[in-house]
């Protein structure tokens, strides 16, 4: 096990701890765990968000409000957070769709989010369906500017691609992993030429325990917020037992530890990207 203090990659990072919707507006103090540390947070009457370590009420931690979430750093905060320009586009609904606890590492959760191969089995009848199980070839690159893993030209047959779907479609996907524990999924929307964005921001509570924050940035006039949240809970509820049964729970970064197939290209690049960064927390090297 690695302490976050031995790993500058995880320590000097913005981490999501809560959607603004969950704490806004409230004087209540909330508690959570981040990198094995107990963290308290609240929004005061002036809508200012305060975050501190348990027992150190007077020392406010570096905090950032971005993309509808509260981000916190326990080390030296980076100057910037990744770009997510769609968040500010007009006519989009930005909605936090709930947070769920999973007993796994952040890397395993990000990888599962970017994997299409499990759709017909785990999300049967919704995001996939037998016999349409093939993951067609797609492109992956690790780019320097911005520093992210990008998978494009992904196509998958989906019986019920989103909450408003009434029939199956070949859905087009783009995946971005612009942060070691955050991933964005872009998929066809009801507006021609525009993509909906589904967001997974992972909060590493411990090396093998996470909070998965989900949100959507979509074009949708017909569904209620409750319908959208229920759809996300359904999908994540189905993923949870799969994630919790992967061993080791920490993400293996050594390419020889697990045998990938062609459909796992995104995962291979993601692991290589993490390995090059030197991430230790929540991973296994050998």
């Amino acid at each position: 096990m690695v302490s976050a203090f031995q790993d500058p990659v995880i320590l000097n990072q913005w981490h999501p701890i809560s959607s603004l919707e969950e704490i806004n507006p409230s004087e209540k103090t909330f508690q959570t765990l981040l990198l094995d540390e107990e963290i308290l947070y609240k929004m005061d009457k002036e809508n200012k968000v305060l975050v501190w370590r348990k027992g150190s009420r007077d020392e406010n931690l570096p905090t950032k409000l971005a993309y509808g979430f509260v981000w916190v750093c326990l080390g030296n905060p980076p100057e910037t957070l990744f770009l997510f320009p769609e968040f500010d586009e007009p006519n989009r609904k930005n909605k936090a769709t709930g947070v769920i606890g999973v007993n796994t590492s952040a890397g395993r959760a990000i990888e599962n989010f970017c994997d299409m191969g499990h759709f017909p089995y785990v999300h049967k009848g919704i995001l996939g369906e037998e016999p349409h199980t093939e993951v067609k070839n797609y492109d992956v690159e690790i780019s320097d500017e911005p520093d992210e893993v990008l998978a494009t030209n992904c196509k998958f047959f989906q019986p019920r691609a989103n909450v408003t779907s009434t029939k199956g479609v070949d859905a087009d996907y783009i995946y971005r992993v612009p942060h070691i524990n955050c991933a964005l999924l872009y998929k066809s929307s009801i507006v021609a030429g525009k993509l909906d964005v589904i967001v997974l921001f992972v909060q590493p509570m411990r090396e093998e325990q996470i909070r998965a924050h989900t949100a959507m940035c979509i074009f949708d006039d017909s569904s209620t917020e409750k319908d959208i949240r229920l759809f996300q809970q359904l999908i994540f509820g189905q993923d949870k037992p799969i994630l919790e049964n992967q061993h080791p729970k920490r993400l293996p970064l050594n390419p020889r530890m697990e045998t990938p197939i062609r459909a796992d290209k995104t995962a291979i690049s993601y692991r290589r990207w993490l390995l090059n960064k030197g991430l230790k927390y929540g991973t296994v090297a050998n």
Binding site: E22, G98, V99, K226, R229, L230
Partner: peptide, 10 residues
């Protein structure tokens, strides 16, 4: 009839 237990505590 969906009653949302979490997060809205309906």
């Amino acid at each position: 009839i969906h009653i949302e237990f979490y997060p809205s505590e309906e």
